[in-house]
Design a protein around this nucleic acid. Structure first.
Lengths: 187, 187
DNA sequence: CTCTCGTAACTAACCATTCAGTTAGAAGAA
DNA sequence: TTCTTCTAACTGAATGGTTAGTTACGAGAG
């Protein structure tokens, strides 16, 4: 063989992640991705079919990784939210890629079964915990999960102008705001 | 006069709003905007300087309108969050435009003073209410505002896959989840 | 005439995608 | 081993359509 197909795909995925996180799908340039991956443009089409195909591959990988890294714990939702926050800190591209997906791709492509199933599983786990009395039943399971996920991502979803108001806050403080807020929902 | 400059600007702003909401800045096409506004492409450059100039004009207008339409009431934050939710329902483009701004424009352009000032004013109002004992002091003012704003926008910021789980929920139910959640934060 | 508003045609660059061809290792035959 | 053939991986260059931005000109009102 001339090269290593798996290694080339890997480099294209990594370069695509950085490019898409920064510029989105419409703003991404296949030339830049190929250059950053030290690969030829045509390889993108050979391995992923199209620019959007590469984005989908990048996004799929992120979804799988996140689902693996941060499992839900229905008995301790505040800490679950905190761990989600930690995950967003570890992978800053994640939230941007997710936003681009929502804005540019979601209406075009089919709902991702992996996300759908994962969410359903989490809702079921919360419902079970509520039935067991481990969790208060003030909110419907799906609504409670939505609240927890939203609050966990609150700092990354904020308009940049807001950061000037809270610039002095430490990471630990922000994490505590999240866990405290989720705790308040359950009180 | 051959035409009406103000009316032309107005049409360009409206067409730009729809185009940018749908495709973002990189994805927007000036030809489509001009056609939708029944105007000429060159008019965009005459009145707004560039594609990004038009986006900024569109965004500025949205910001001003929202700040005018939904004034804060520190003594009743749950209802404030509810009114924000109502505003997002009335202007569906708003949240998308705001997301595009955050992803595509915020890093390039200066922080918008209007947003900065408005946020500062809200933080001050919350701090005052806390000092007056109208509002519990469990959260710092800026953190509490961030929580309220985040929760108010929770349904629009959700990944589309999530909507399949809560499809049956009515608008009223979603609004109640928001006001209940903010109420829980203040308990 | 002059000023404002508007337009059609143009350009130069850009960009996703394709393709004809090259490279180098593998495998089989003698 | 050595020669031949096959093929996956890769490449440089082209293609064809698109796009932001420009320019030179027209037309009506005062």
């Amino acid at each position: 063989m001339v090269g290593d197909a798996e290694a080339t795909k890997r480099r294209l995925l990594d370069a695509g992640t950085a490019e898409f996180a920064k510029y989105g799908i419409a703003g991404a340039r296949v030339d830049r991705i190929a250059a950053a991956a030290a690969a030829n443009k045509a390889q993108i089409y050979h391995y992923f079919g199209s620019k959007e195909g590469l984005f989908d591959a990048v996004f799929d990988e992120f979804v799988a990784q996140t689902l693996r890294e941060v499992p839900i714990d229905p008995a301790d939702l505040p800490e679950y939210a905190g761990r989600l926050f930690d995950g967003y800190l570890r992978h800053p591209e994640l939230t941007r890629i997710a936003s681009w997906y929502r804005l540019e791709r979601a209406e075009t492509s089919e709902p991702l079964q992996s996300i759908l199933k994962a969410n359903q599983g989490k809702v079921d786990a919360i419902a079970q915990a509520q039935a067991d009395g481990v969790l208060p039943s003030r909110f419907d399971p799906a609504d409670l999960l939505a609240l927890v996920l939203t609050i966990a991502g609150m700092w990354t979803a904020m308009t940049p102008e807001y950061h000037d108001l809270v610039r002095s806050e430490t990471v630990e403080h922000r994490r505590k705001v999240i866990t405290d807020a989720v705790r308040a929902l359950l009180a």
